[in-house]
Nucleic acid binder design. Structure first.
Length: 421
RNA sequence: GGAGACGUCGCAUAGUUCGGCCUAGUGCACCACCCUGCUAAGGUGGAGAGGGGUUUAAACUCCUCCGUGGGUUCAAAUCCCACCGUCUCCGCCA
């Protein structure tokens, strides 16, 4: 939910943002009109209600012989109050519908346009080159007996897989490396529920245009989360936070579930795009003024993870149209995937400013004692998908795979993954 | 799965019998001030959330909020219904 005051006082800012995203600009004017209508309706209702409250006292104190006449009068007033209340509620609903459809105003400098209009901020590391024909991660996964896609499909259908042996260990090593990184940066680890109630899913903004991406369990009216961001954002919902001692930072460890409904036929091979994977997600609750600095911090943590895994990557500033409704700015880090000859997204970090917090009612107290929404940010620290880049980047001619130094302590010192005999 | 109890302004509690005197009382904690040489104790006052109006702002003022949502009524913390949550007992499973 955007700030109603911003909408009222600076509709141009919202208009520009909607335009940059390629979203409806007219919606801004509709929302402004709905805001005016809503406030008028509220005023009318409250005037009548005040009258009714006062009259109620007269009735209560009236002598018995006058009561009947007064009650008759009160009934008539009550009917008018009821109508006005309904009108106010309707106006409120309409405003919420329209304003709720407005996306988070993008931050100054975010490139306008769609998926291809991103700006590359930097490229880091040397892309792997081979004097042999490199194998893709599926082949390597088979050689190492680390990834079993055939059986994953047999058991659960397409886009499912087993991580086996060294594959399972490698994922845990990566996740634990990320967890230690998060701990050293002061994050509190949190293992989160992966089934959430509808209001939490809606509050984080995932039930909008991407609702067909989400698994839903009708028998229980619960949603399977596609990222622990959902639970992490819901963690402090309806709370007033104390940020005096600095931001609240959490690292959420969870399995993630995605239907991948719109991507049939895309990335069918391997474990790049799957229905289920694990992820360690950073989540920060900060003062609105500190959000951009926190965003830079989250990217830095992500880059240090990519570097620890000895991967070549680029950092991109995602274009407005590709942001999702809650994000005011998003940086993706994409690692070079040798057999695809391209960069693929490994992390994503969003600055949701106060947009998500306003929906979930997460506030802090200002110096004057008033409450106002906090800013929320989130970013990936590790996911199963990283195995793709790690295996392909560090492979050798004989099918063995070099283990990045930083991961070795988590694999009992193992330096090389050897093909199974 | 069955039976029952409960949900009140940070915490604890009163109020629900019998709808209007609840503009929700009290204690603790909290904040400011006063008093006592310090501390403790005591005194006075303040203090919840959301939203309108007004305003540069403050002050002021009005409406809403007693788990959530409906309903009955001139009037609901109080009566009715549904849902959510917590606890206890029984059953079942691990």
């Amino acid at each position: 939910m955007i700030d109603p005051q911003l909408l009222r006082e600076n509709p141009d800012v919202v208009r520009r943002s909607q335009a940059a995203r390629g979203s409806s600009v007219e919606l801004v004017d509709e929302a402004v009109a709905a805001d005016t209508a809503r406030r008028t309706a509220i005023g009318e209702f409250e005037t009548l209600r005040a009258e009714q409250n006062a009259f109620g006292k007269t009735v209560a104190q009236a002598p018995k012989d006058q009561k009947q006449a007064l009650v008759a009068q009160a009934q008539e007033l009550a009917a008018r109050v009821k109508a006005a209340q309904q009108a106010a509620a309707d106006a409120e609903t309409e405003f919420t519908r329209l304003a709720g459809a407005l996306q988070n105003p993008v931050i100054e400098g975010v490139p306008a346009g769609g998926e291809d209009n991103f700006i590359t901020l930097r490229e880091v590391g040397e892309k792997a080159s081979f004097d042999f024909e490199p194998r893709d991660h599926v082949e390597l996964g088979e050689l190492l007996q680390a990834i079993d896609i055939t059986r994953g499909t047999k058991v659960s259908g397409s886009r499912f897989y087993f991580l086996k042996g060294i594959g399972a260990r490698l994922e845990l090593a990566l996740m634990n490396l990320a967890l230690d990184k998060a701990l050293s940066e002061g994050f509190t680890p949190l293992i989160t529920p992966t089934l959430v109630r509808p209001e939490i899913m809606a509050g984080t903004g995932f039930l909008g245009e991407h609702s067909d991406e989400i698994y839903y369990l009708p028998a229980d009216d619960l949603y399977l989360t596609g990222t622990s961001e959902v639970a992490l954002a819901g963690f402090h919902s309806d709370e007033i936070l104390d940020l005096e001692g600095g931001p609240l930072r959490y690292a959420g460890w969870s399995t993630c579930y995605r239907r991948e409904a719109g991507s049939a036929g895309k990335d069918n091979r391997g474990i790049l795009r799957v229905h289920q994977f694990n992820k360690l997600e950073m989540f920060s609750y900060v003062l609105p003024d500190d959000a951009e600095a926190e965003h830079a911090r989250l990217v830095a943590y992500q880059e240090s993870m990519l570097q620890a895994c000895e991967l070549a990557y680029r950092v991109i500033d995602v274009a407005a149209g590709d942001l999702g409704s809650s994000a005011a700015r998003k940086y993706d880090i994409e690692a070079w995937v040798p057999t695809q000859g391209t960069y693929r997204e490994l992390t994503s970090t969003s600055n949701c400013t106060t947009y998500q917090a306003r929906r979930l009612d997460i506030r802090y107290r200002t110096e004057s004692g008033k409450t106002t929404p906090v800013a929320t940010l989130n970013g990936t620290l590790a996911t199963t998908r990283w195995l793709v880049a790690i295996l392909e980047t560090h492979q050798r001619a004989d099918g063995s795979v070099h283990v990045p130094l930083a991961l070795r302590p988590y694999l009992g010192g193992l330096e090389v993954l050897e093909p199974a005999k």
